[in-house]
Amino acid sequence: MRPIADLVIYEEDLSRINACLSALQRKARSAAILLIDTSGQLIASAGATDGLDTTPLASLAAGSIAAAGALAQLLGEKEFSFVFYDGERKRLHLSLIGSRAILLVLLDQNSAVALVRLQVKKFSREMEDIFTELSRRPNSGAEGKSSPSKPAIGEITDDDVENLFGKG
């Protein structure tokens, strides 16, 4: 299996991703959308996310997609293209964007599943193109020129990490 490369996102990448997610959220008439890395980290979101605890949602969605992928392989399938959870008031549509990211679409009573599936398919291609570009670009934090949108992180010392933990 190919390793997952580190993901580095700059201001301009996030603007493109956010524009794409907002358009999908609007056109799919969904309540909210999360874009999640396959290792479980939230990359970006759109829609009504204020009441959502997005960090564990992202982690659990990644776990769910990973389990679905493993189930598919056990059954001789390459993958299951999406996972759907159907609740009384809310529904979740999870799908893979290439091998790199997961799209979580939260549907409410105003959303239509067929519309969501159609729009997700359409926008997945666009998202996949963005991630292909990101994966081809070398990590340029310290190598590239530092700018307001690409500030170098600088040297990280053991004391920096110690300070994170305080006296704990």
């Binding site: 990359i43 949108s149 500030p151």
Partner: peptide
């Protein structure tokens, strides 16, 4: 796989 978000100035690591 670490995730560095320069836009939000965040570093995310999985342990």
């Amino acid at each position: 796989m670490s995730f560095i978000n320069y836009a939000a100035r965040e570093i995310n690591c999985k342990l």
